[in-house]
Amino acid sequence: MSSAAPPKASASVLPINGSAEAVSRCIATARKPAAFALAHSREEADPVDLGRRVLLGTVLAASAASLIPPAFAAPAVDAAHDAFFGVSKILTGRTSLDPMQASRLYEALVNDDPQFATGLQALVTLIDQRKIDPLQLQQVLDSEKSPVAALPRKIATAWYIGVVGDGEKARCITFETNLTNVVVSDKLTPPSYCYGGYGSWAEKPA
């Protein structure tokens, strides 16, 4: 019944590109919409490039531990954050990730699933020891009926969709800065944000 005192109607007041009150809680602790344009790949995307992706995957998989800055490895909490950061880079395929966003996603994942931190360590160990190509990772985990098989999707969903948890427990942690919006930000604005002046969408995508 929390909406029993509904806000005053403002149908006659039409904010251009969303009013201040319409700025998402999702970003309130992190950044403004203007910060969407993190670095992203501009390379042409080919549908399949197997040889190259296996090579890339192997290189990245080999470096899970090395991605963790040694200076932060000491306290257990920091180590867990760092492990998350390292695995996130491998799964997302991004060479740079926002640490603050990483921190928020990690906390949300741990809050959603008390076993997450333990599972994460197991996943890190597995990737480090076996140098599994990230493109093959899910298949390997599924075929081995690994107890951590659900983790890669949870982590990738947190980064790319900005959502942690399922069903009633699902929470939006990021929207404007989720990686889906970031990696297409040279072409698209996040839905609900103005593309540009009237008719600008008629032009060929630059």
């Binding site: 395929g93 991004r94 990772l137 990696v183």
Partner: peptide, 16 residues
């Protein structure tokens, strides 16, 4: 993500 596509290929195929 549902298909288990992770790593650099995820961003690449997403853009495609």
């Amino acid at each position: 993500i549902k298909a288990g596509v992770f790593g650099p290929e995820l961003e690449k195929q997403l853009r495609y």
